[in-house]
């Protein structure tokens, strides 16, 4: 399907996309999530929605008394607002409309608004109450919210495998199919800890780059043991190849690799420059390599040889 304008793939009435963060809330419940860039507060949840989020993100919940840095209200949308989609053989991708002060998002059973009015605020409009389906819409929106908030805070959300070895993070950015999940599995076999095989938060603290755990994983279930943030030792851009090999990247190449793998914000013309600036700062003095690897845990012998 090739929509002619924003929202046409998912919405029956794209022109009726909510203009404001207002409407009927699903319920009285609230959750605060302690994620990088947050805390993030979600208000207006029905009980079953809150429970669905708690069921999956319990490890990231903060006390209700914690003041969120970003608040998202969850509003009802009518099922009739959304187009019925046959998902067989279909690749899901959200639709975005990027404005200087508002970003609109449309997807299956969801409409989302991010709005900058002094500070970032958000709204999620969902037509589903049941736990599993609601959580799908919720997590999709949370990923986007986290991506933008991290850029605001000088960081970025990067499609990558994040792996901890001897107390230091190693970041392996790569798009879908680049081998992040395979690399993650090999890392565990080599005695490392995997933060995520899909998305990792990269932040700057006192001039040093850190990798922070976020609850977004791909095929490989992330391990949750240990601390949530680790200093970044090096970046390894994943490339296809027939042998284990490493070559040094220039800082520009490292920045390009991270930028390419920073979803959503990297194609937002109003906030892309901020992302580039963040990555420019983070890549200063950061060892970076291009890594090709075979499906054997000996890749970690090579990585450790270069990282000491």
């Amino acid at each position: 399907m090739s929509p002619t304008h924003f929202g046409a793939a998912y919405l029956e009435y794209p022109d009726l996309f909510p203009a404001r963060r207002a409407g009927e809330l699903w319920g009285p419940h609230r959750i605060v999530l302690a994620l990088p860039g947050g805390p993030y507060g979600f208000a207006g949840l029905a009980e079953v929605q809150r429970d669905a989020v708690l069921d999956r993100l319990q490890a990231y919940t903060a006390e209700d008394s914690v003041e969120p840095a970003v608040t998202c209200h969850v509003f009802r949308a009518a099922p009739s607002d959304f187009v019925e989609i046959d998902t067989r053989g279909w690749e899901y991708s959200l639709e975005f409309d990027y404005g200087p002060r508002v970003v609109r998002v449309a997807g299956m059973s969801l409409m989302g608004l991010l709005e900058w009015t002094g500070s970032l605020e958000a709204a999620l409009f969902s037509s589903v109450e049941d736990g599993e389906r609601f959580y799908g819409a919720f997590e999709n929106f949370l990923r986007i919210l986290t991506a933008y908030r991290l850029v605001e805070r000088g960081g970025a959300l990067v499609h990558s495998a994040g792996v901890v070895d001897r107390g230091k993070a190693h970041l392996f950015p790569g798009r879908s199919g680049s081998g992040k999940s395979t690399l993650s599995r090999l890392s565990v076999e080599a005695g490392c800890t995997v933060l995520s095989d899909d998305l990792n938060a990269v932040t700057l603290r006192d001039g040093k780059t850190w990798v922070e755990k976020v609850p977004f994983s791909g095929d490989f279930k992330a391990q949750r043991d240990g601390a949530s943030a680790y200093p970044l030792r090096a970046v390894f851009r994943l490339e296809k190849g027939e042998a284990n090999a490493l070559r040094a990247l220039t800082r520009a190449e490292s920045l390009a690799a991270l930028f390419t793998c920073a979803p959503t914000v990297n194609v937002d013309p109003h906030r892309r420059d901020a992302l580039l600036s963040n990555l420019e700062q983070m890549t200063e003095h950061l060892p970076s390599y291009a890594l090709t690897f075979t499906r054997s845990r000996s890749v970690w012998d090579l990585v450790r040889e270069h990282t000491g």
């Binding site: 220039t250 520009a252 190449e253 920045l255 390009a256 390419t260 892309r272 420019e280």
Partner: peptide, 22 residues
């Protein structure tokens, strides 16, 4: 197209194509 110079190299972003070249 937007680009910036990093250590003498250019990171070039082609927004419409979603591509980055160095």
């Amino acid at each position: 197209v937007r680009y910036r110079i990093i250590d003498g190299e250019a990171v070039v972003v082609r927004q419409d194509a979603g591509e980055v070249v160095v």
